[in-house]
């Protein structure tokens, strides 16, 4: 594939976003927006996870924690002064980014499975805190009455959908920009060999902190609109294991080496889940993820993108031999 400079990539992404937004105007049923919102939310989550998990090689199991911090930040903001959604998203992002910074500072000296366990513990600690915090509803949960219409006069769910669409575009552009930057090189060296990275002059701790902050902030931003989407939020749904499992499974299935993998994985898996929810039962969702994941681990450990790349290489090789 020819290399496209980041600014053109973002331009193309913006055009695609616009095209989706315009064509969504023709949707006749609001259900489309409800389903589309969830799919796009997972595009953000999978992309965010991949910045730390795929590019840097640190597996974060605490995804649901970051997501829920975003959601509960929005709840707090709503209870305090009902700001515009964009403000809640920004605050959610900042809060999750800060937690990412703290978590990173405390746990990034751990490698591999130990880091994963620490992140999982973080999510559980946060859930316990929220469950015991009355202001945000505690274990009873909290009702959020969302406005009937968005700021442009459309039904509010359309507004949420558009917001998540823009957010996913931003997330993908950030991921793509990192991939082809000095930062991207640095993160890849950390994934490959941390000692060698330091010896080559890479400030590994600083870069890992940048990755956790970015990854955490994007997850928080994805979580911030959640209270408005569900209108009733309690700790067990905010911190739902499904968020963590999906955000990890989607990049793994799509491929962790580039921005495209999480996008493909999220679109594919979340769409299948949405279809299954309507046609069979939502109880099947995690089972579907599990089965697909096992299939991919066995048949295509580098995900769909890896499978595609292998196909391209295999096709090129015989052609080269003939030419020789």
């Amino acid at each position: 594939m020819p290399y496209i400079p980041t600014r053109y990539f973002c331009l193309i992404a913006a055009l695609v976003t616009l095209a989706i937004a315009v064509s969504a105007r023709f949707a006749t049923n609001d259900y489309f927006f409800f389903a589309g919102y969830v799919v796009l939310q997972y595009v953000v989550m999978a992309t965010a996870w991949n910045i730390l998990g795929g590019y840097t090689g640190y597996v974060n199991f605490g995804t649901a924690g970051f997501f829920a911090i975003g959601a509960y930040s929005a709840v707090v903001m709503h209870k305090l002064f009902e700001p515009p959604l964009v403000v809640s998203i920004a605050v959610g992002g900042v809060m999750s980014g800060l937690v990412g910074l703290g978590m990173g500072y405390l746990t990034l000296r751990l490698r591999g499975v130990f880091f994963a366990i620490a992140t999982l513990a973080l999510a559980i600690v946060l859930q316990t805190l929220i469950t015991n915090w009355d202001f945000v509803g505690g274990s009873r949960g909290v009702y959020i009455i969302r406005p009937a219409n968005g700021p442009f006069g459309h039904p509010y769910i359309q507004y949420l959908f558009l917001t998540m669409l823009v957010l996913s575009t931003i997330a993908v552009c950030i991921a793509r920009a990192i991939e082809h930057s000095k930062l991207g090189y640095g993160l890849a060296t950390i994934r490959d060999d941390e000692l060698a990275a330091e010896a080559a002059g890479v400030p590994t701790l600083k870069l890992k902190l940048i990755a956790t902050v970015l990854s955490g902030a994007l997850m928080g931003m994805a979580g911030a609109p959640l209270p408005y989407y569900v209108t009733y939020l309690d700790p067990s749904s905010g911190f739902n294991l499904a968020f963590a499992v999906n955000s990890i499974a989607m990049p793994l299935i799509g491929g962790t080496s580039s921005w495209l993998g999480p996008v493909i994985g999220a679109l594919l898996l979340a769409t299948i889940q949405q279809i299954a929810t309507v046609t069979i039962s939502s109880a099947l969702n995690l089972l579907i993820v599990g089965v697909i994941m096992v299939g991919f681990v066995v048949a295509a450990p580098n995900g769909i993108v890896g499978l595609f790349e292998r196909g391209v290489r295999a096709r090129r090789r015989p052609a080269k031999k003939e030419a020789a």
Partner: peptide
């Protein structure tokens, strides 16, 4: 040897050039 396995040989050398 601790090469950066996901990168090409030339990219391996880009790292110290960029970061050092």
């Amino acid at each position: 040897p601790k090469p950066f396995r996901s990168m090409t040989v030339a990219e391996n050398l880009h790292v110290p050039a960029l970061y050092t």
